[in-house]
């Protein structure tokens, strides 16, 4: 799920929100994103917070913030409710 915040927020343009089902899964998604963007576009994140153990990882690419949640973690819903007016896109990857 992608939230388009360009009309709403000044600090980032897009939230990419995805979830994994286990700690290794979260770790794999996080490394996949970082390595993929690094090799294909030579982009590195400004920062990365959280760990698979905390069941929530945020990778900050400035214009795009990637949130990776454990599917048990309900923070996802709060993020969505905060941006209820943001256009959203579903990506079927």
């Amino acid at each position: 799920m992608v939230l388009d915040l360009r009309e709403i927020s000044t600090f980032t343009d897009f939230f990419v929100i995805c979830s994994g089902t286990s700690e290794p899964h979260l770790k794999a998604i996080s490394s996949g994103i970082r390595e993929g963007l690094h090799t294909e576009a030579n982009i590195s994140p400004l920062s990365s917070e959280g760990s698979p153990l905390s069941q929530w990882i945020v990778i900050d690419y400035s214009d795009v913030l990637v949130h990776i949640f454990h599917s048990d973690k309900r923070r996802f819903y709060a993020l969505e409710s905060l941006w209820s007016d943001a256009p959203r896109m579903n990506l079927n990857a």
């Binding site: 600090f11 917070e49 945020v58 913030l65 949130h67 923070r75 993020l79």
Partner: peptide, 10 residues
Amino acid sequence: DIYRQAFPGA
């Protein structure tokens, strides 16, 4: 801290 993580720089 949760909000700081979700919205860095806010």
